[in-house]
Design a protein around this nucleic acid. Structure first.
Lengths: 303, 303
DNA sequence: ATGATCCATAAGAAAAACCGATGGCCAGCA
DNA sequence: TGCTGGCCATCGGTTTTTCTTATGGATCAT
């Protein structure tokens, strides 16, 4: 990585002579003579004292050698640093999230990624899918977790799992013990729903139209946790990914029958973009985790 | 002195593209493609993301670039170290200056340096301290004259003198004959001050807050000479290093009592950097001159 | 002196780097 | 959607750099 001139110079300095250095470098001795001569000319100073029996550095040579060695060390360090980056002992990853994923999928994913690669710094930003796609396209995000019906042609996807919405209720809700419900059950519900800026809400509205039902929307909120906490404390219900209820004792996710209220969760990134080692590792982990969600019976809606 | 591979790599990184870099280097674009490809192979990592419209560094590339630049600086420093002749019959010195020093301290210093070493070429650049520290760190400047509270960890300092701000007024100003003034005198003044981009202004603002005074700021200017000329021609006053007034008949520097408005001027250079003979001679001269300022009664605020 | 070592120089051979031509790939635009 | 311009990769053939071998001059110990 250093020019021949400098490498040869250091070799001669270290070996205390042209002949020995030539031997060590597996080149002929005249090759060294020439290179060093050129270096001396370009630096405008004599680097070696060849007058005596042994070749030694001049003052100028001694001075230059310290800097040359430093430069060499820098380059070798750079080489090591690269491998550190690719083996994920550092680096960074900017992740975009659709709000509904933040709680139940992104949580475990980020946790396991951070556990495995603690030195990769993560940036998590929750945002609507439209915005996410735009930010991916201009390379402000590395990867997104959202749904597979992307609008932007610059974004490509890999499906993670099918996410089904369930009726989520609190322990005091009349339907709390039911295993499954149908559209007609929903029709009589008083719901608390996300506002229309969420893709989830659009999906629900379409579902209601298609099934010709008009459940009461008792409360609207623009935050998942507000919805969840309200459901927990009232006899209102909501429609959310079933995963959100898992892990919470007093929340029950009741499957919809038939399961028409579903969409495909996906990993998003810019088409043909360079994918950093961190991004690739994240992808692997995400696919892994999602297959657990799918296969393992733990996912309430996978059956 | 760096191998072609690395030099080309840096050029592509800096120019943001192969084509532009090729132009800058006066080689063909394929030559760059080949060299970079070889470098990437030898490092076992992709250095550039060529997928999009613009070519940009990958994480690995970014990492390597910092080390490569460091190596380059080392070699250039080595070159200068060689050329640096101890008798100062040639050489060069790149000096950074905080604006307030330009007039009264740097002037005499540069004058005496140039008188003593006429063959050393000088480069004087006025700039804010932050910028100065950055340029010192990347070896674009040899030495800086600023204040001793540096932010960068890569810069070290040697104190020159304590610089006290004084109330500077013109001959027609009511306080022109006073020997000293207090904070309460300042409170009633109409001032013309430097803008907030100057460290001096920050210092003054803090002083006012601490003394609970709010003098009128009649004029703001971002140039020392503008301030000085205005003070000379009006009955407005300003707060500036007392030294600025010395040597000018119709400017009067009135000491503040107590002297709380002061800071330590210092010489700055990059930590552990090679210091050329010129830089060392400059340091000696600067310390010498500053002790004259301090000791000799000529400095209006030294008593 | 003499032989052993060491480095410099010269000239041709080998290797590396380079150039121009060409083609593919995006991205912006009609 | 197809066109176009900008950008990079690849491919032969050429130029430049670097290397090798052969040789000669200098130094130093014997």
């Amino acid at each position: 990585m250093l020019s021949r001139h400098v490498r040869y110079f250091l070799a001669v300095a270290e070996n205390g002579g042209f002949t020995r250095a030539a031997l060590a470098l597996h080149v002929s001795q005249p090759a060294l003579s020439q290179q060093i001569k050129q270096l001396e000319e370009s630096l405008g100073a004599q680097l070696f004292d060849r007058s005596g029996r042994v070749t030694r550095l001049t003052d100028a040579g001694e001075t230059y050698a310290t800097y040359a060695r430093k430069a060499l060390r820098d380059l070798e360090e750079g080489k090591r640093a690269i491998h550190d980056v690719t083996d994920l002992s550092r680096g960074s990853l900017r992740i975009g999230l659709t709000p509904t994923f933040t709680s139940y999928f992104a949580g475990p994913l980020v946790e396991s990624f951070h556990k495995r690669y603690p030195n990769v710094s993560l940036s998590l930003r929750e945002m609507p899918q439209d915005r996410m796609e735009a930010l991916l396209a201009v390379d402000v995000l590395d990867v997104g977790i959202a749904f597979d019906d992307v609008r932007s042609a610059e974004v490509e996807t890999v499906a993670l799992m099918i996410e089904s919405l369930a009726l989520v209720v609190g322990r005091r809700h009349p339907l709390a013990k039911r295993r499954r419900v149908g559209a007609q059950d929903i029709a009589g519900e008083s719901l608390i729903l996300l506002t229309e800026e969420f893709a989830t809400r659009e999906l629900i509205d379409r579902y209601c139209r298609e099934n010709h039902i008009q459940p009461t929307v008792a409360i609207e909120a623009n935050s998942i946790s507000a919805v969840v906490e309200s459901v927990r404390r009232t006899t209102l219900s909501t429609l959310l990914p079933a995963g959100i209820a898992s892990g919470s004792r007093d929340l029950f996710a009741i499957a919809l029958e038939p399961q028409t209220l579903q969409r495909t969760a996906a990993l998003l990134w810019r088409k043909a973009a360079y994918r950093s080692a961190a991004a690739q590792a994240f992808t692997v982990l995400a696919l892994d985790l999602s297959s657990q969600f799918q296969a393992g019976g733990s996912h309430p809606l996978s059956d």
